[in-house]
Nucleic acid binder design. Structure first.
Lengths: 127, 127
DNA sequence: TTAATAAGATTACATTTGTAGTCTGACTAC
DNA sequence: GTAGTCAGACTACAAATGTAATCTTATTAA
């Protein structure tokens, strides 16, 4: 079954990344964490959190006085969903085109390449 | 130098894909082409075209009575730019994570894998 | 006990995007 | 020459997003 994950905006992804890294967290913890990488005001981050809750992408623990927040989907799920729609839009669905383009870039270290090759080598027999 | 390409929205990408496929095209040609894959009204498509022109992503030929439109950036440039920001947001910049995740998917054929491997094999020496 | 504080709830407002519709002026078929 | 048509210009309007500020209420420090 294909889960339908609500759409997560660019800024909201930053918040999700924090929560996937560690959760549950209070709003203040999320704010503290994001203040290292962004210059968003606390209220802004709080709004993003609230919207994620409203969208049912993040859950809230209201047991304690100060709420804590946690993701309702795994990072992996969300990455896959997002990447699928991305690849469709940008590469006409041809995942391979994208891989080819990016393997040819400078971005990968020799280590990375070694690892990728070993993954590829294992691949065809798995069917 | 890193070119800064204006941001292209999801619907606008559909239009760009048409123009990269073949250009220059009149608005009506773009409309005809998109009407096969979408159910957008002609005026909607025209608006998208106009916005792309406004954003300086598409150029216009006003020599003839009926304008023709053409991309101002190559598909490759745009794909790279978009993918870079995408990978940063979704995979924290770790292109490799994404590659690993998708190489492990079912989505690739044996042929694809063979091709990817041959690209990887050529890679490390190029430095 | 009273005033400051802090968390959560509510409200705000501009920009971008999706999705068109109306207005205008030139050309075209009678 | 007059009415319809069509391209382009301009206008519209709701939802999503970015980016917060204000209001309310409970707790805390003096």
């Amino acid at each position: 079954m294909v889960i339908n994950i609500p759409s997560i905006s660019e800024s909201e992804w930053e918040v999700m990344n924090i929560l996937w890294n560690h959760s549950p967290l209070t709003a203040n913890e999320v704010i503290a964490s994001l203040q290292e990488s962004t210059d968003w005001k606390p209220k802004t981050i709080r709004t993003l959190l609230d919207r994620l809750v409203y969208k049912n992408v993040v859950g809230v623990n209201k047991d304690q006085k100060v709420y804590t927040f946690y993701p309702l989907y795994s990072q992996d799920e969300c990455q896959r969903a997002e990447t699928e729609s991305f690849v469709k839009r940008i590469y006409g669905g041809a995942l391979k085109s994208m891989l080819v383009q990016f393997i040819q870039e400078e971005t990968l270290s020799d280590e990375d390449i070694k690892e990728l090759r070993s993954i590829l080598d294992k691949k065809p027999d798995e069917k």
